[in-house]
Design a protein around this nucleic acid. Sequence first.
DNA 1: CCGCTCCATTAAGATTTCATTAAGACATGG
DNA 2: CCATGTCTTAATGAAATCTTAATGGAGCGG
Lengths: 238, 238
Amino acid sequence: MNKPLILVVEDDKAIRNLITTTLETQGYLYHTAATGEASILEAVSSRPDVIILDLGLPDMDGVDIIRKVRSWSNTPIVVVSARSEDKDKIDALDAGADDYLTKPFSVDELLARLRVSLRRVRYDSGKLRRDSPVFVNGGLKIDYAAGSVRLDGKEIHLTPIEYKLLCLLAKNVGKVLTHNFILREIWGSYSSDLSALRVFMATLRKKIEKDPSRPRYIQTHIGVGYRMLRVGDDSAGN
Amino acid sequence: MNKPLILVVEDDKAIRNLITTTLETQGYLYHTAATGEASILEAVSSRPDVIILDLGLPDMDGVDIIRKVRSWSNTPIVVVSARSEDKDKIDALDAGADDYLTKPFSVDELLARLRVSLRRVRYDSGKLRRDSPVFVNGGLKIDYAAGSVRLDGKEIHLTPIEYKLLCLLAKNVGKVLTHNFILREIWGSYSSDLSALRVFMATLRKKIEKDPSRPRYIQTHIGVGYRMLRVGDDSAGN
DNA sequence: CCGCTCCATTAAGATTTCATTAAGACATGG
DNA sequence: CCATGTCTTAATGAAATCTTAATGGAGCGG
């Protein structure tokens, strides 16, 4: 996962710096805003993972900001406020805030509560893209998340290099990949032999082609390289 | 949506009554538990929408309860505790709690924070939620609540690391987990050796595989990592 | 037809990665 | 303090994988 992006909305420069420097040491990215107006713009444009929001902004009521953000986004909002009255907390939480800290607050606690919110973001976003990315071509199926390959329903075992090779071809179905390109992608630019690639192609074909002499998936382009063909679904795949 | 079910875990009868009567007036359903043991059982059997948890239980460390519940469930946990030290809060939140209130607390604030959690439950439950206190795969059965593992009906003993390892694999059945991923998840990112992992894999296999040379559950992907296979139910499980 | 290049395939070494064992360090509870 | 169980580390042999080299076939121009 990439570094989370935190939007810090706080008009007091000292506190803002305290928060941002702390975030920096923890490896978070951050944007800042000092007014309600700016915070809304930032929330829209930079789509932060979490918003830390000071309620005491000069130009806008904090609860209104929460409501405004909530009208289009579920981004977690952690409120930081000088007001410790029950009513303030309840209003903010019911408006859509996810947490409420009163100043003066402990930086460590803020970080912990931030982690809680981030946990939820990560968890939710994992659910949204629940179906693992899969490549299907005829009877060939690559499950990238599982790292497995199926041919006509049966799982086949590939060595790491064979797997990388197949993925590379699959990512460029229909395109001819030159020898040099493949060698660079798989072995990383140095030290490699065409013959090595040929050997791996042979073993790979032996595994995924029923009749290696008349390949269905991987085609040789003499003097240039290889290419994976897009093949019509002829056999009971999946 | 039906009335939400809240599990109230609190050993002090007065506070418990305070909470439950409040919940009642708000139209919530509730169950109660006064010990850690009972709370786990309730969480498993009644599947509450939210758990309100007092950390100061007589029989079990509160953070352990959180961890145990989190091992199989994402039910929001709102902690209510007499301890107000930063460290206590952070430990609880990082263990998986969603919120932390210190006694004495305002009932209205508790209700507001409860609504925050419920809002999320309602939002989340649209997506498929896999909250099962047991994991079954062929003859292998993990009871997360009890922390026990059965193989073909017989209970087997696993050391803590072996158990975590098995749970990690079980949570990602069918997926290949890289060495680095496993090391990070089990040992927490620092200082660990592949060979250590291999040793634990060997001992784990010796315990759950009848024929360790031809593993049924845990497959090794050379140069990459390990993976648990989804295995058809072939032997009389349970 | 011959010689050349490019390719597929096979086989055999070299290297990496793995499983397993055993011994020592560490912690835990009595 | 001992006893037990658990974790770590190191060493060994085995297995899988990668590399390299050799052989033979197909296409092409001379």
